[in-house]
């Protein structure tokens, strides 16, 4: 393995690890992400948001 290979690998592994850790930190510190699967599963269906949602306008904004 060349020095360039070591640098490329370490930088890539570091970037992926830091980004993954940041995501886990965001998920773990937010109570909204601590979903309870059993509860979520029980209410899983399309259009579950109560009030009907109108179709979006297809016009360019």
């Amino acid at each position: 393995m060349t020095p360039g290979g070591w640098i490329f690998m370490i930088v890539s592994w570091g970037a992926v690890s830091v980004a993954t850790a940041w995501c886990f930190w965001r998920v773990l510190r937010s109570p909204r992400h601590w979903t309870r699967p059993e509860e979520d599963v029980a209410r899983l269906h399309h259009g579950e948001f109560g009030e009907p949602v109108p179709p979006p306008s297809g016009d360019e904004d």
């Binding site: 592994w13 992926v16 995501c23 909204r32 579950e48």
Partner: peptide, 27 residues
């Protein structure tokens, strides 16, 4: 995603899915 709710955080969920997968794949 058609089963997600309006209050679900797509930004963090999407990025977490990508990065978890990349950690498993690349490393």
């Amino acid at each position: 995603a058609s089963y997600l709710r309006r209050r679900d955080d797509i930004v963090v969920t999407g990025l977490s899915t990508c990065m978890t997968n990349e950690f498993v794949e690349v490393i």
